[in-house]
Every structure is written in structure tokens, then in C-alpha cells.
Nucleic acid binder design. Sequence first.
DNA 1: ATAGGGTTAG
Length: 619
Amino acid sequence: MERHLISLLRCPLRTCQFKQIHSLIITNCPSLVPVLLRALLGSSLIGYARKVFDKIPQPGHVLYNSLISSYTKLSLHKEAVRAFVLMHGGNVRLSCFTPPSVIKSCSSLLADDVGKQLHCLVVNYGLDSNVYVQTSLMDFYSKIGDLGSARKVFDGILVKDPVTYNSLISGYSRAREVVAARELFDSMTDKTVVSWNAMISCYANNGEFHEGLKIFERMLDSKCSPNEFTVVTLLSICAKLGDLEMGLRVKKYIDDNCLRVNKIVSTAILEMYVKCGAVDEARQEFDRMDDKDIVAWSAMIAGYAQNGRAIEALELFECMRSEHMKPNDVTLVSVSSACAQLASVEVSERIGLYIEGLDLVSNPYVASALLTMYSKCGSVSKARQLFSKLTRKDLACWNSMIGGLAVNGFAEDAIDHYEKMKEAGVEPDDITFVELLIGCTHAGLVELGLELFERMKSEHGLTPKIEHCSCIVDLYCRSGRLKEAYDFISRMEEKPNAVIWGTLLAAARTHTNIELAKTSVEKLLEQEPENAGNYVQFSNINASMGKWREASKVRNLMKCKSIQKPAAYSWIEMEDKVHKFLVGDTSHPATDEVYSIVDTLTVQSTWTVCDLESHLEFG
DNA sequence: ATAGGGTTAG
């Protein structure tokens, strides 16, 4: 009977079968309760196991170990710590098998105090020379960001295996201590594939992408073969660099070496294509995947949204819903951002209603994307309503709201929110000030804008970026204060860029300040010799000054450099179709009708200089 | 011990 039950407990069993065996054990051979307990723990039936455990009169350290390590494995970290407290309070002997699990749970809980107490306990019991205990302690300190203590434990380990090193390397990586990670990595004599991967991802996660690639090259030179983890990290580096060429090399490596392409690898390939702007290739990869989980859908929808292909993003979202796939917060962020691009009140409000109904606005990413969506299509009141409902408002939420108000002409309201944001204890950042300055520009509040620019530096210790300077130039320009704009540019610490000269140029032209326009366009040509638009501007300005020879020189210059002005289409969206037109275009099916209306419009309006210029042809 | 998707501006 007893032997029979033991062998039964070795088989995979359902709960009801466990119950039958359980009753047999209670009535026939109670000594088998610990065997039953371990079988239950092995089947992850932790609740049932705990009930059995609680019936055991005085469980010893071995049973406690089994219980605690199961809690840890199932990520029930608080339970693991509670069970340990129970064990310790019951004066059960402590073996070196228990602390690693509890300490691991403390790492996951980021429970600094409990973990440190455990360390003391371990030292008092003389268990701190056990390598498993040491490794878990080192891991604990590295997870809570105390790398100094982690290092002390590490140095105290007499026989270190690669796992010990790898763990500390990833600890340094998380703590952004890249140099320390590299030193440790270099000191390793027997690097495993995990060591190489950890070092590459250390560089990747700390923004040193090219260093990461260099480690990969060295890995290839050594005899260590890259695995799936390696290529995923490499692909994410290529994505961040926008380096399609390298991305394709990694893809080729995967194919040539027949690496297993799991979901994560395919998504990483997809993402690499997306971030390199190769959206159609990304879609091909997406279509090839037979098991699409939600991450792949979200990545593909984001791919369309981030590459300005809002309609396709929304189409794929519809397709996803028709396949009964449940969207999550990440999906909805991209969907909102696609709607924001469409700037259609109807679509935005429909999607907004849907998303708000899902109760996901507690996620700040979703909230800020929605706020932007409403603002972009002018539904400021919807944005305000949503904002007032938000309980968790992070920096991006405040910025979205401030930006929404600013761009829709409510500059004072935006500033009001900036004050409220500070009261709420959220520190404004450079984006906040870009938004505020834009608000002042739109409302023509020059002095207020300049004041904010000063406060940004003095009150918040932020260094103005080129974007802020650009806003100030715009602020002066729109109020016609060209001289001050020019003086500001001359005083700027950073080198003025094309956006700034472009702003000044536009203003100089509307205020017919030909000299300033000429200066600006010359600077523009210096900075962007490949931009055909600048040559057109240069020529037009010279023409308007009567300098025809200068003007015509440009055409030859463009021919020499083989620069072509890209076709500038006008387009309009009607119902769900986009109609686009080029100058002199007669390809539209309703051309006759279109031109007859254009003719009447032309008669109605008076030609302006700008209109005429836009009809000049070059190249 | 190492791996994949997202928000705010210009």
C-alpha cells in the first residue's frame, strides 16, 4: 500500500486525484504526508500544499525549505518571507538551503530592511561561507542598487563560478556602472555566452550602442557562439541606431546559423525594421509569424503610427479586434497616437470613448496619449474633462495637457497648469517649457514668454536647448520684432540651426525685410546645402530684389549638385479617401470640375507674392 | 545570470 501510494505520487495528478490519495494517506499511512506535500508543491498546487503543511505538528527545516522555495519560484514573495518568519519564530534550525530563497524574494520585493536583517542572521549562524547564500546576497544587493555591498560579498566568495560574475555584471549594468561592469567582464577567464550577452546588453541599456557592437565582434572572434539572447539585444541596438544595414547582418546571422526564431526574436526583427523606417518589411515579418501574441500586434501598430501611417495603424487595430485579440495599454497608446495624427474629431472621440471605457487611463502612458489625441483635433474640453478625472498624473500627462492648452490658444490656462503642476510636486522639464513657450507664441505674449524662459533657467536650473531658443526666435518674429530676434540669435550660446534661420526667414519675408531674408537664406544654404527648398527661397528673394542674375545662378548650382526639389503635393481628405494634387496635375478623375472651381476661386482672390512664388518651377 | 511593444515638443 505505502509503496503503491509513493509511486502514484510520482505521476502527474489532478487535484481530485490528490484528494483521493490524501484521504488514503490520512487513514492508512500518515507518515507519507511529507511526500504528499512535496508532490503538491511540485504540481504548483501551493494553496492545497499550505493546508497540508499547516496540519503537520512540528515541520522541520526540510519541509520549511520546500514550502519557502516553492513560494519564491511562484513569485509569491511576500508569502515566502512570511513563511520564513514563521519558521524562525518556531525555532526551527536554519540550514544553508533556506536563506537563498528568502533572500531572492527580498530582492524581488526590493525589501531592503528584511534583506539586510537576513544578511546579519546568516552571518550569526555562520552560513555566510556557503556559495549559494553568498550569491543570493550579492544578487540582493545588486538588485537594490547597493553595488558596494554586492561587491564586498562578491570579493568574499572564494570559489567563484561564471554565474557569480555574470550576476554582478548585470548588477553593475542596472546601476549604470558600465566601467565597473567592463572591468569585471575583462577579468573573467572563462566567459560563458551569458557573460557576453550581459556585457552587450549592459552597453545597450546604457546608450553605448557602438561599444555593444564591438563586444559582439570580439565575441565572434572568440570561440563563443551567439544565441537567441545575443541577437535580440543586437537587433534592439540596430533599432535604436536606426542601422538597417547592421540589422540585416544580424538577420542573416540568424538565418545562416539556424537560430531558433521564437516570438521574442521575431518581434525584435520586426521592431528593428520599424525603427529603421522599413515598415513594409516589418509587416512581412509580422505576417510570417504564426503565433502572434499581443506584443507583436502592438509593435506593428506602433510601427505604422510612428512612421506616419495612421490609417494603416487603425486598420491593423480593427483587424486585431476582429481576431478577438484583447488590446492592452501599450496597444492603446499607439492607437491614440495614430488618431492624434489623423486629427479627426469623429474618430478620436469614438476611440477615446472606447479607451476610457476600458478603464486604462490609470496608466499615465495611455492618459497622456489620449490627452494629446483630444488636443490635436481641437477637443480641448474633452482633454480637460479627462485630465480632471486622472488620479495618477505623471510629467508626461502634465506636459500633454499644458501642450494641448498652449497650442489651442489657451496660453494663460497653460501657465496656470504649470503652477498647479509645481504645487502637485511634479518638476517641469524642458518639454514643459517648449509647450509653454509655444503657448506664448500663439497668443503673442512676448514678455510672458521671455519671463518663462528666464524662470526656466533660474528657478528650475534647466539649460535652454536649441528648441527653446527656436521658440524665443519665433516669439519675437511673430510679433514682428525682427531686430530683437536677430540679436537673440547672435547672442545664442549654441550654434543656430536651420529651424531658427528658417523661422527668421519666414518672418523677414512676411514683413518684407529683404536684407534680413537674404542673410537668413544664406545661413540656411550653408547649413543645408542638400535642401532644394533653400535654393528656391534664395532664388525667389534675389528675384524680388531685382537681382535676376543671382536668381538664375541657383538653377545651375542645383543642376551641378544634382539636387531635385521633391514634388510638393496638396491633398485633402474626403470621407475615407485622400485626394492629392500636383501643380498642373490633370490626373484626378474629376479634373475638369476641379479646375473650373479653381478658376472661380482665382478670380475671387487677389494674387499675393507668396501665391506667385509657389508657382515658380525649378530643377 | 542575458532578450521583444508605448506617452509629451521641435
